[in-house]
Amino acid sequence: MRPAPRGIRPMHEHTATAMGVQGCPVCTAVLPIGTPYCARCGTHGHTLERAGMTWNGSMQRTWAWLLTSVLLYLPANFLPIMYTRTWGNLRESTILGGVLTLWGHGSYPIAIVIFVASVLVPVGKIVILVWLCLSVQLRYKSARRYKTRLYRITEFVGRWSMVDVFVVGILVALIRLGNVMTILPGPAALAFAGMVFTTMLAAGSFDPRLLWVREA
């Protein structure tokens, strides 16, 4: 599926930064470093600040989003994500509680889907991003290819955590059988959605080129 790069050789052993240029992240134009505005696509601001590979801007934003996502992940797990009201009884369920209930009912495939999307992916994503940030800041240079691939996977799978929020939304909209059974969303649903968005913003703020900077 992924052929080795055919016919492509690096022009020099040089990075764009070493040649005094930078790639526009939006339209891939090659611009002189420090250009505040890309004439080809009209991008400006911190999207173009990538030049010069200073880790300050990128790292600060990544850490800030990561911290926010951790703070949102706590209520997302401990507060109820969904209330089920049957004949006047109100039962609340958390994310993990929901997974355990599904497992107990023998719905192993959905239990696994929800567990992976709501627990494994977000926690894994936060851990990987923290590790990548630390390895940039501590100038820990090994396994760059591997780390870049991890970053790529993190960026790709992040959105899939939203599954559980959508499930809650659909159940709320659908199961409104008056006294028999009504489902209401809990505060964790919004916290969890916020957590997914902030981890996506954290991954987007992280600049993987920093993993490849040679000189300290």
Binding site: I8, R9, P10, M11, H12, H14, T15, A16, T17, M19, V21, Q22, G23, P25, T28, V30, M53, R144, T148, Y151, R152, P208, R209, L211, W212
Partner: peptide, 10 residues
Amino acid sequence: ACHECDLLVA
């Protein structure tokens, strides 16, 4: 310029 590692590629 590679978006992820900054290599300048022809």
